[in-house]
């Protein structure tokens, strides 16, 4: 074997050793928790607990020195971060984690956060058409909503299909962040927007759109946001996950008892107008909850809709529509409440 041959084999060998080595390194003891959340009033519990310092206060007995919140515009990128291990816990709609679990994400829904709370907003000029034709008025329109795999996208697709509208051919669906969607409808670049509170209310206050339907009217009591924990955290530190759920329950109860203060915290954190947010808290059909069992039925439906959207792919991998046990882990919540 000549020199070059030996050198290349050594190089390949070193490369493999490095890669294998990286996979085998032990994780150090956990001192920091990363929580993902979105700029929606659905996830006020996360912001309130952070504002009041409850995260760090409640978790320090478990050796946690720092809790950092990470903002994501919508659910799917948040799940990418979770897949990469950048966040351990996520406040996110129920659909993105389901979509990611199909793709191999190791995580479970451990608590509920809220149901309903999104709205269809239409450009003022088109409201008359909507009042006349209902959902069929959406045919041929440009609709901005959250990306594929999100609650909004999933509900919208289901609603369109139920009314005989092909989401791929009969409408022009555009995936956007909430701020881009608000700009787009303001610039008349899109006709319809379907996003979670408080964005529909903000758009309405600006006069660039009119709320015509709440998601609770499309699908009563549909699950929206939930609390997701990584499989790793659940397995290695169930006590931390339990405490996180407890803090979440505390924050949720606080939020329901003090809606105005909650609005102020949201306005402060996201740079929004306080009065608009207070208006939103009164108008939205969102229901803040913490019991994961309340989200099971609609989540299983999401799992079915998402499965159908990717049927050939999942079938080729031998996957079936997800079951409750594959999505939810109720045991920790149940232990707290009973």
């Amino acid at each position: 074997m000549n020199q070059k041959g030996v050198m290349s084999l050594v190089a390949i060998g070193a490369l493999m050793a490095a890669v294998l080595g990286m996979a085998c390194v032990e994780e150090p003891k956990i001192e920091k928790i990363n929580i993902g959340y979105q700029p929606s009033s659905h996830q006020l519990a996360a912001m309130i607990a952070a504002e009041k310092g409850w995260w760090e206060e409640d978790l320090s007995p478990y050796g946690i020195k720092e809790v950092e919140l990470h903002l994501f515009p919508t659910g799917p990128p948040e799940m990418t971060a979770m897949l990469a291990g950048d966040i351990d816990v996520a406040y996110v709609g129920a659909a993105p984690p389901i979509a990611s679990i199909y793709e191999g994400l190791d995580a479970k829904i451990v608590a509920g956060v809220q149901t309903q709370g999104s709205a269809i907003v239409i450009r003022p000029e088109l409201v008359e058409e909507y009042e006349r034709d209902g959902v069929l008025a959406l045919k041929g329109k440009k609709i901005a909503t959250y990306p594929p795999g999100s609650i909004q996208h999933t509900i919208l697709v289901k609603w369109l299909l139920e009314n005989g509208i092909d989401p791929g051919k009969d409408v022009d669906l555009k995936a956007m962040t909430p701020s881009d969607a608000a700009s787009a409808i303001g610039a008349k670049a899109v006709d319809v927007v379907f996003v979670p509170s408080p964005h529909p209310e903000i758009i309405e206050q600006e006069g660039t759109g009119v709320i015509v339907k709440w998601s609770g009217e499309i699908w009563p009591n549909h699950a929206c946001c939930c609390l997701v924990a990584s499989g790793k955290l659940i397995e290695e530190h169930p006590e931390i996950v339990t405490q996180i759920i407890k803090t979440h329950i505390k924050a949720t109860d606080y939020l329901k008892a003090h809606p105005d203060e909650a609005a102020e915290i949201f306005a402060k954190w996201q740079g929004a107008d306080v009065e608009t947010i207070k208006y939103s808290m009164n108008t939205t059909d969102a229901q803040w909850i913490h019991d994961p069992h309340l989200e099971v039925e609609s989540s299983l439906e999401y799992a079915q809709v998402i499965y159908e959207q990717n049927q050939e792919r999942y079938e080729s991998k031998g996957l079936k529509p997800l079951t409750e046990a594959e999505i939810f882990l109720h045991r920790l919540y149940d232990a707290i409440v009973h």
């Binding site: 799917p76 990418t80 793709e103 994400l105 990306p147 594929p148 999100s150 995936a175 990717n310 792919r313």
Partner: peptide, 10 residues
């Protein structure tokens, strides 16, 4: 970017 990435279908 608007489908595969969001579905995480790498």
């Amino acid at each position: 970017f608007n489908e595969f990435y969001y579905w995480k279908q790498m």
